[in-house]
Design a protein around this nucleic acid. Structure first.
Lengths: 220, 220
DNA sequence: GGCAGGATCACCCGGTGGGGGGATGTCCAG
DNA sequence: CTGGACATCCCCCCACCGGGTGATCCTGCC
């Protein structure tokens, strides 16, 4: 287990958020909490990185959309120079690319603006202990990103085992006679399979069949 | 936001764990908690799925390594038939493949055995609100899995712009005459390009050229 | 000014690919 | 048991692909 710091001593937090209103709201929301201690607030990524280096907070609450240096780049820099600092993203962006980029940059949590203070506190607590919190709204997206393989539960193959075998060899670059050798078939038979494959895949030649097979992930 | 059920009413929880000792420990650890209510405990995946269907708990605490039906398969079944039930993995497995498989199966959290009751409760709470909790020990692995893309930035092409254009059309499935039409070239010229492409890629036919282009990500 | 290399064309020709057939065998349902 | 669906095999024919060889422009580089 990670070293769990005594919950008695408050957690030093740095807020990085360009919207003054939101910055104020955040600061005042966290101020009354006994477990945390807001040590400062930066208005953009540059300030955020500088203040993080200067004050070494335990955790940074990081907005994503900011002028000059965005939250993702700032997180990367902080994580690069001060890996022990935990970073929780706090943003309204829910697009998968944004989310993945944020997490890839080293963020330890991802909260959506509009969440309750309690939830935010929970994310902070978890990030502090080394875990990761993902907001319900983006959880599915991350999961989807984690599971690229179970694309279609219905392969919609129609291809027989033999045809799949032939298709695999087509992708490998073998000619019909070569495929025949490997499968102990006559070239004519192989051609029949190829015809069947092209019919079922609704393509005109083996190139398109190979491309389809690769794109659909039937073969590698 | 998700519908946050009033925190007053306790959360019905089903425990699925094959080790009798661990099962007992879990049950007794959660019993005194006012926010949760352990409604049962299953000893393997089959029992777990059956009890989940019978009692419809709000959340399932799921072990991974179990006889007959493992936790991942059980989670898939539960999520398939009862998607509203949240599932938190509780296991000692930390291998990346296990973790990813678990999350891919639809789990809403991942705790490592040995964690504190408080952390487990936190994971349960988060999963209930729709979020995802990842244990500190596996967080890095998931992050690593999320960022597989930064492969090599050296295309090592050698292909001229025109050749790339032709290669792209080959992948699209066009024949040489068709490519000629699209690029306003004679078939002979197209053939010259195709020859050049095959020479530079060291392949024998257009199929292998297309496969290479797809695998290397030169075209999509 | 030469020279390399890309882009554009042309011809020949052997082998292959893909479209048309037709032929078995098995297996399952009516 | 009979018929159809399917996988498996075989043959012919010709358009097209791919190898070989060569030509003409143009651009950039030494």
């Amino acid at each position: 287990m990670s070293q769990k710091p005594s919950p008695k001593e408050p957690l030093n937090i740095l807020i990085v958020e360009d919207d003054p209103m939101m910055r104020l709201g955040l600061t005042h929301s966290l101020a009354p909490k006994p477990t945390v201690n807001v040590i400062g607030a930066a208005a953009d990524g540059y300030e955020g990185v500088a203040m993080a280096q200067a004050h070494q907070p335990a955790l940074v609450l990081m907005d994503v959309g900011m002028p000059r240096l965005d939250g993702i780049a700032a997180t990367q820099q902080i994580k690069h120079t001060l890996p022990h600092i935990r970073v929780v993203m706090f943003t309204s962006h829910t697009e998968q690319t944004e989310v993945v980029a944020a997490l890839s940059s080293g963020a330890d949590g991802y909260c959506i603006k509009g969440t309750s203070i309690d939830t935010l506190m929970q994310a902070i607590t978890i990030a502090t202990t080394g875990g990761i919190y993902l907001d319900p709204h983006i959880a599915q997206q991350v999961m989807a990103c984690l599971t690229p393989q179970p694309q279609d539960s219905i392969p919609e193959h129609n291809l027989s085992a033999r045809e799949l075998e032939v298709l695999k060899l087509i992708v490998e670059g073998y000619s019909n006679p070569e495929i025949g050798e490997q499968l102990f078939l006559s070239t004519n038979t192989v051609k029949t399979y190829v015809k069947g494959i092209m019919n079922k895949l609704v393509v005109n030649d083996r190139v398109q069949a190979a491309v389809l097979a690769l794109r659909k992930g039937w073969v590698h």
